[in-house]
Structure formats: C-alpha cells, structure tokens
Amino acid sequence: MLDFVQQLVSGVALGCVYGLIALGFVLVYKATEVVNFAQGDLMMLGGFFAFTFIGMMGLNYWIGFAGAVATMALFGMLAERVVVRPILGYPQFSIIMATIGLGYFLRSVAGMIWGTDDLKIETPFSQGVLRMGSLVLAYDKLSVIAATMILCALLWLFFNKTMLGTAMRASSENMLAAYYMGIPVKRVVSVVWAISAAVATCAGVLLAPITFIHSNVGLVLGLKAFPAAVLGGFGSIPGAVVGGVLIGVIESMAGFYLPEGWKDVAPYVVLLTVLLLKPEGLFGLHVRKKV
C-alpha cells in the first residue's frame, strides 16, 4: 500500500510535467489549429535558459526562473512570427512538418550551445522530504504538483476573467468572426504562443530536479505529452492536465508492477485502446462534418 502511494505521487508529479507540456499543445492548438511538435523542445530550451541564469550566472532561483520564463515567452512569440504565421491556414500536415523542423533545429542548436551532458539545477527545495508516518514524499515532486495546480488556476482566471483571455477564447472558436469583431487576432495568437512557451518553461524548470536537462529531453517528454493531450481530447485545457496525470501514473505503475519494458510502452498501449473505443479522446467533443 505504501509503495502504491509512493508510486502514485511520483506518477502524478511526472504526469503534471506531461500535463504542462500538453497544456502548451492544447493552448496553441485551440487558438490556431497548429499542432506544435516543438513544444517539448521549447520546454528543453526553457530548462537550459534557467540553468544559464541560475547555475552559470548564479542568480537567485526565483529570479532565474522568472528570467527564463520571460525569455522563453519572447522566444515563443518569435517562433510564431517566423515559422508559424506565414503558413497559418495551410494543410495541417505542412504545419506539423514545419514544427518538427523547428524542433530539430532547436535540439541541435541547444546541443551546440550547452553541450550534450545532463545538467542539473539546484533548487531551494530539492533536498527535503515530507514525512507522514512511514510515508516519505520528496519536496521536488510535491513542488511540481503544487506548481501545476497554481498554474492551472492562474490560466483559468486568465481565460475566464480577463479581456485578453476572452478574446483568445473567441478567436479560438472562430478566427474570422473574432477578426471582424475587432479582436487583434494576430497579436492574440502571438500572446498564445508566448503563454504556451512560458508554461513549457515552467515545466522544464520544475522537471530539472527530477530528471536532468539535456538536449533530447524535449523530444522524449514531448512524445509522452502527446498521448496526454490526445487522451484529454486535444482541445480541452483541464483534459490536458488530467491526461498528463493519467499518463504519468500509468507509466509509473507499469514501471513498478509490470515486467521490464512495459514502462515505456504502457502509455501508448493505453492511448491506442482509448482511441479505439473513443476516437475523440476522453474529454473531446465529437464534431461531425455538416453536409
């Protein structure tokens, strides 16, 4: 039972990271119908920036964290402007390929700049553990869970209570109509990319104490975050986080209870099963083409 809870918590913590990356996919997808295969790489880049600020320049953890988030938000806008905006509205296949290309590029460039070694970010809270009876929970894992919850709450407030959030929801429903209503759609899309890159950075920095940062971490985790987003219905923000947590828990349980090899495959097996039964994901809307 104790093992189970322990596995559950580490699964949920890992799942929160997946969920945060998946959240980035979903934000961008909802706003622009672009599936950003480079989302994991944005996370990786965010982690490296945080490492540069905290580990190399010796800044305070929180200042470094904020600096990385701000840098990546700008970078997200830049990526949108250069790679995505010119092809907005083209077939999805082209857009997916463009973001795959962007991912390739980011991975290689990060490898050139920061090398291929695993890097670790020291956090003020990565050492301690929380003891509840015989249950031992590491603070770094709990911090991921807490941070995810805070981020989700902030995003929820942003989307439902602010003007910009409402504008974003409107342009995600119908971009042309939003444009006619005077919403600056292009700027909104820019902001969506900034938010999505910022969320990815949070995931990257939170992840750093659990797994290390290296140039391929984005690809590896991005491939886990996709099932998370799909499981959640690829269009639902809470769905993405729930999907991420599910994938994280499945992975960690499979790693503990099933024979070796299942850990990496189990999320995909579950994903395929879900898609077989419910092609639009767990929380997706089934929309039919009208004729």
Binding site: I87, A98, G101, Y104, F105, R107, S108, G111, M112, T116
Partner: peptide
C-alpha cells in the same frame, strides 16, 4: 555535433514556408 540536425531543421522549415 548538432550541425547536421540544425541544417535538417532549417531545410524542412524553408521547404514548408517557401516551396510547399
């Protein structure tokens, strides 16, 4: 090390953008 990957990435993006 990563030069090949970077060139790959640039080629893909350029093709999608300019030679669809």
């Amino acid at each position: 090390n990563g030069l090949k990957g970077a060139i790959y990435g640039i080629i893909i993006v350029l093709f999608v953008l300019f030679e669809p």
